[in-house]
Design a binder for these strands. Sequence first.
DNA 1: TTTGCATTGCTATATAATTAACAATATGGT
DNA 2: ACCATATTGTTAATTATATAGCAATGCAAA
Lengths: 261, 261
Amino acid sequence: MDSRHFRLKELINFLKLKNAGTVREMASAFDVSEMTIRRDLAILEEKNIVKLIHGGAIYKSAGLNTEDSSGNKYSLPREESTRLSEKRRIAEKAVSLIEDNDIIIIDSGSTTEIMGEFIQSSNPSAIICYALNILISVYRKKDYKLVFGGGYFHENTLMFESSEGVELIKKNRANKVFLSARGVSDRLGVTTADSYEIEMKKAALETSQQKILLIDSSKFDKVLSAYYCDIDDIDTVITDDKIPGKYVEYLTNKGIDLIIV
Amino acid sequence: MDSRHFRLKELINFLKLKNAGTVREMASAFDVSEMTIRRDLAILEEKNIVKLIHGGAIYKSAGLNTEDSSGNKYSLPREESTRLSEKRRIAEKAVSLIEDNDIIIIDSGSTTEIMGEFIQSSNPSAIICYALNILISVYRKKDYKLVFGGGYFHENTLMFESSEGVELIKKNRANKVFLSARGVSDRLGVTTADSYEIEMKKAALETSQQKILLIDSSKFDKVLSAYYCDIDDIDTVITDDKIPGKYVEYLTNKGIDLIIV
DNA sequence: TTTGCATTGCTATATAATTAACAATATGGT
DNA sequence: ACCATATTGTTAATTATATAGCAATGCAAA
């Protein structure tokens, strides 16, 4: 059909092979202007296939791309449109809640992953997690103990899950858990996409004193198949200022500590 | 020794995992200035490990670069990891033993880590491991299932250890385990440095059909405090050609399959 | 053909990243 | 302890890239 469609598929192959590429070299390789490549890359970023950086793009092999060898359709993971700046603000606020000597649990998720970037400014005494991207974003900072759940790998969420991992989480206690979710509904509670996540998330909730939910505003009124707790189970919600007024009221009435960034 | 040397290795892991990264996020991750990261990346570019781009760096994956005349694509300033070329030969031979649909366990260690580089040429159906460097070196190849032990992190070996991790390993079965050790002695058996490793290694041995020890020749006649098995428990030893004659004889007499590379 | 819309390239302006030089701090060897 | 050297952070000036707006093109449906 359109030449863009074709070029996008080729761009994905190019990036997959090389891990990442500069705008310049891609413009040259596909014989179009740099502006066109930038626009293409913006589309791929929307689809969460690449990460844009100044001067180029990085292929997200770790990410939630489900391209199949058959028809290599790029049009896949209708994953939430990134909302990176909101997520960064949310993550930064979340980290600011960490007090010295806290023991914290960090759930899987893209917003929680960003917490790793900010966490050096705080001093937890231990971090417990069970997703690869979280592990990588925190393991270097080494001023704290690190506990990792382990189990069977799920590449769409980068999470490891197993009954043994659940046991390990339950054996520990935490002051705070930083949770993610894919949907929050007043009627149907807090949900996520995959049922294998449930037990790990529940274990994290169970063993934590304060339960903090990090969620960008696009997730309100969304419902996904895997239910894992009621909104009443959450102590604190951190979200951005596009949260629907209805939910501001709802959460406030429930007595939940609502932090809007 | 020097912190730069350490950080360079960490940077490689970071980039290997993420394909590429921005100067900003790396400065944040390692808690140094952006200038320092730029200087580090310039060194890695010299060594042909990364490609510099405006704003960041791209990891050059091993398979894709025909360049690098000296063949030392992996030779970062890791002088302390001696005998690198022996270890690479050993790791490559080890990977060649993997058959299609094998389920394999990879122990912690620097030699076993190198296996990840070669493993794309083979087709195990599952990989079980419990050390971070192993996880990073194998997770992206994604044609197999991945099981990770989990537990409490030990930064000297990058290993996670816990009774739950041991249980998880024991719940699985493997065709082959690829083990490392710090010392092999005819009188005192196979040893390593830290006692926390013992239970995980024993579990790996217990649940595997064929037990393969990867060990460079400098480790023979060495004894460390943590004993974890007898040489009789091993089926196959892969080592380099500087192995003392005494041990060639000893292992052969024991009926152990000795592979010298 | 005409109309409407997606795609593309171009340019001026706004942002962002790099460089070079210097100062401050850590490190290793004698 | 001392010195020599390596490492690191900071700044201002330079260079590179991104963005926004507009005009031109191509293409498909009426």
